[in-house]
Every structure is written in C-alpha cells, then in structure tokens.
C-alpha cells in the first residue's frame, strides 16, 4: 500500500523534474553495476573454460570453447552431498544462534536500563576487537580438551553468538522509537513478550541483514573447520574445494572457479530470500 503510494508520488515528481534525471540515475547505477559485477561474471565464465584459457593474459570474457568438464570433474571427485550437508549444519546452527542470542542481548542493551549495562556493552565491544589469529591455537587446545575435535559442535559453539551481531542489533533497535516499548510496559507486558511481539517484528530488516552477513561469513569460513575436522567426512564445502589447489606451486584454476560458483549459490539464495525485508516503507503509522 505505502509503497504503491510513494511510487505514484515519485512518478509525479519525476515528470515534473524531467525523466532525464531518472535516466541518469539508472545509467549511473548500470555502469557501477558493470564495474561491481565484472569479476563475478569472469568467475562464472571462467568456470566453463580450460585451465590454459584461464591463465591467458589478457583474460577472455567469454570462453573460446565452453566446457562443462570442470563441473563434471568437481561432482565426480567430490562427495558433494556430504560436504554440502556439513556446511549447511554448521552454517544453519551458527546463523540461527546469532539471530536469537544477538537480538536478545541487543534489545537488552538498547532499550532496558539495568545495572551493568554499560559494562556489558563495553565487553561486547571489546570482544568485537579481539584479534582472531592469536587466539586460534589456545581455542583449539580448549576444543581438544573438551573432546570436541572432529565434531560439528566444535565448529559451531565458538561462533554461536558473535559480538558483531549484538552490536548490529543493539544499534538498530536503539533507533526504534521508545514509545511503543514504553506503551507496552505500561500495559504490563513482560520483557520477553515485548521482545518477541514488538521488537522482533520491527527489527526484521536488521535480522535479515544479520542473517545474510552471518550466513555468508560462516559459509565461507575455512581455517577453523579445517583444523577441527580430523577426517574428510567432517569437511565443509570450502575446505573440500580447497583441495583443488593441488600443490604448493600448482593450481587447477578451472576446478577452483567452478567450486567458487557452486559455493556461492546458497549465499545468493539466502540473499534473495531475505532481501524482501529491505522493501520500502515498514508501516510505522500510529507511532509518533
């Protein structure tokens, strides 16, 4: 409804100030898009090329002789369903955990006045800045002592509630109007109820963003799943695909690019599925 109204209004304005400006915007966006998308296009076309053609300088944009060999070899050599399932389990659990736990704490930090709030927020921010590389070995020693080596749990637990998500949700929720929440409190609603019934629906765009970003980073993570997995059965998709950079000095580029395309598909699906929460105009009518 609202979207339709504003579109109609936009149309009026466009006519008044001349359709040229709209065209200018579209042209600018299209050029920017070409720049943004060209490496992706090359990755896609490269996955249908022979290794020799991929190495050629300058690169070709369309394959001279398109071939499906890379994909064929990929699926023949790879226990694809297993790696895909592993990736899905780990990424699904981490994404779900972050959505729930981070929005809970994000709400508390944004809208509840409680003792220790400042300190807790400071802790979250500090956690955000913790240098990852050096905690790696101690974390693995811990996982090893807990008996979580070679388990999905060992890949999931350390990342189940990241400070990034808490910060994002806290920032977004603090931008929501206080009035609705205060009104609910006056009506005697408990915090859990306010969170579930009011905050979560209003924060859907932010949850979508968090979902997209968490899914992306977890799906692509490489080093931690590799170190935790002790057998190929536990490998996630990116780890399994990295096997194709076959030597210290040799790389099968065709397989690598085909693998990159295969890895990216679920990420794009999630993006497309969640981006509908970025539609214009969440009805805020009735709020002041």
């Amino acid at each position: 409804m609202t979207a339709a109204v504003s579109r109609a209004r936009g149309g009026h304005r466009a006519r008044r100030s001349g359709g040229n400006r709209v065209w200018a915007v579209y042209t600018a966006l299209a050029i920017a898009l070409a720049v943004a998308g060209s490496p992706f296009a090359w990755m896609l076309s490269g996955s249908f090329k022979t290794d020799a053609e991929i190495r050629r300088i300058p690169p070709t944009w369309l394959p001279d002789q398109a071939t499906l060999d890379n994909y064929r070899e990929l699926f023949e050599r790879l226990d694809f369903p297993r790696y895909f399932a592993n990736s899905l389990i780990v990424t699904g659990a981490v994404t779900a955990g972050n959505l729930v736990f981070c929005s809970m704490l994000g709400y508390a930090l944004a809208k509840i006045d409680f003792p220790g709030r400042q300190a807790l927020f400071a802790l979250v921010m500090a956690a955000l800045m913790v240098p990852g590389a050096v905690t790696f070995v101690p974390l693995f020693v811990l996982i090893s002592n807990l008996g979580l080596v070679d388990t999905h749990l060992g890949m999931i637990l350390p990342f189940l509630a990241g400070p990034f998500g808490v910060f994002l949700m806290r920032q977004y929720i603090s931008g929501l109007p206080d009035e609705v929440i205060d009104a609910a409190r006056v009506d005697g609603a408990g915090e859990l109820r306010i969170f579930a019934r009011i905050v979560v629906p209003l924060a859907r765009p932010a949850l979508a963003a968090l979902g997209i970003l968490t899914f992306l980073s977890t799906w692509n993570s490489f080093l931690w799943p590799l170190v935790v997995a002790q057998s190929e059965e536990r490998y996630t998709l990116p780890v399994a695909l990295a096997l194709y950079s076959i030597g210290q000095n040799q790389t099968r580029f065709g397989l690598l690019l085909a693998g990159a395309v295969v890895v990216v598909v679920p990420v794009l699906v999630v993006f497309v599925a969640l981006q509908r929460f970025f539609v214009q105009g969440i009805a805020m009518t009735g709020l002041k």
Binding site: F101, M104, F114, P138, L139, P158, A161, P163, E191
Partner: peptide, 23 residues
C-alpha cells in the same frame, strides 16, 4: 527488568566466557 536483561545476556555471556575469554 534487570533480571530479564541479564537473562537475555546469559547465552552470549556463557559462550563468551567459555570460548573467547580463556583463549
């Protein structure tokens, strides 16, 4: 409200203390 807030913080805190603070 304070209890609720700390309740909301509990999962994050528990995971943080276990997997981040020690390392």
């Amino acid at each position: 409200r304070g209890l609720a807030a700390w309740g909301f913080a509990l999962p994050f805190l528990a995971l943080f203390l276990t997997f981040t603070a020690g390392p």
